[in-house]
């Protein structure tokens, strides 16, 4: 079973890396970019189990390690 966790910065948290990427895209001639926020993706491979149980496990993983919930949000997708 596979799952994907996406970690993004919370609204209101400054993202200087996203800003730099936005600037670089502008320098490449891409227009109309209102903003860029950088995040992280974790692809997990899990032994087969009930999807709901897996989701609960992954949520615990996010809370304990994958995300810093002071500054980051996370989303879980069972693939």
């Amino acid at each position: 079973m596979k799952a994907r966790v996406t970690v993004t910065l919370k609204n209101g948290v400054l993202d200087p890396q996203g800003k730099a990427i936005e600037g670089s895209l502008g320098a490449l001639g891409f227009e109309g970019i209102a903003g860029v926020r950088q995040g992280k993706v974790f692809d997990l491979e899990l032994s087969d189990r009930d999807a709901e149980a897996a989701k609960a496990d992954i949520e615990a993983m996010c809370e304990k390690l994958l995300a810093n919930t002071v500054i980051e949000n996370y989303a879980i997708e069972i693939l």
Partner: peptide, 17 residues
Amino acid sequence: LTEAGLLPGALMRNASL
């Protein structure tokens, strides 16, 4: 210490990068 929850807040990438 912030990551362990022993201190409040978080330390992020320097604004200058």
